[in-house]
């Protein structure tokens, strides 16, 4: 049976992982390659790298990181952040990314999603949707949740699917950083609205939140950063907890 996936997310800037990672015995807490290696050994099902580098002249750093990780970590790697054109997708794939995540650029230029999926296949195109509740519906936001787009999140998810997205990474900007759990209503609404896999993100504070994301939110994968980075919970521990709660996982 297909397993639900657990995906640690690493925010990278200036070639270093930020937000801190607190593994026991980690020599260099900011080295993306060492952290990726650790998560691979711990049983992560995939890894997501989010390049939050502000300046374009440092963009190549992420390529070197992905090259180094892909040479020794043999699980799927997703990379997002700063993807503006098909050439960016190509550079990341060539460096060893398996999937490329497109966020703000999908809003500014939806055709990019179609062009990239036509060229490289839907399987490698993830559309990241940052969403906030506004009144009685959810709206798509860009620029880290600062900029409203006026787009309805559910309609936007359907449109991205129709343009060729192979997967959606759904982040609740209301919950991100709160440790109060995923926005389950949002996750479920989007998961029910499309036929492609959904990764739930934003708000994980404990292992029950991961279970809820799958069972209540109907997510196909759950993404988390801080609960894993700071060693509050191990990947293996999270998977065992999910399994105890009747969720199929890879152990």
């Amino acid at each position: 049976m297909l397993a639900k996936r657990i995906i640690p997310c690493l925010d990278v800037t200036h070639g270093r992982v930020v937000k801190g990672v607190n593994f026991v015995e980690l020599k260099d807490a900011g080295d993306p390659v060492e952290i990726a290696r650790r998560y691979n050994e711990a049983g992560a099902d995939e890894l997501t790298f989010l390049d939050i580098t502000a300046s374009s002249d440092e963009r190549d750093l992420i390529l070197h990181i992905i090259e180094a990780v892909a040479a020794e970590v043999f699980i799927p790697l997703t990379v997002g952040g700063g993807v503006r054109e098909v050439g960016d997708v190509q550079r990341l794939l060539n460096a060893g990314a398996d999937k490329v995540s497109i966020n703000t650029s999908a809003v500014l230029n939806p055709q990019l999603v179609k062009d990239a999926s036509d060229r490289y296949g839907s399987q490698c195109i993830v559309v990241a949707i940052d969403s906030k509740r506004v009144g009685d519906h959810w709206e798509v936001f860009t620029h880290g949740g600062r900029k409203a787009t006026g787009l309805d999140a559910i309609e936007w998810a359907k449109k991205m699917e129709s343009l060729g997205a192979g997967e959606l990474l759904l982040t609740s900007m209301d919950r991100d950083g709160t440790k109060s759990g995923f926005d389950l209503e949002l996750t479920r609404a989007i998961s029910d609205a499309v036929d492609i896999p959904i990764i739930a993100s934003g708000g994980v504070g404990n292992l029950q939140h991961l279970v809820d994301g799958v069972k209540e939110g109907r997510a196909d994968a759950v993404l988390a950063a801080s609960i894993f980075h700071f060693g509050e919970y191990g990947i293996d521990e999270a998977k065992r907890y999910m399994k105890q709660h009747g969720i199929e996982v890879r152990l």
Partner: peptide, 22 residues
Amino acid sequence: PHEAMIDNQGRKLKVPHMGWNN
């Protein structure tokens, strides 16, 4: 086939088939 993509709890299965399977 779209009509067959339902799990044993009656829930929709996503396509692409993406992830780790036995």
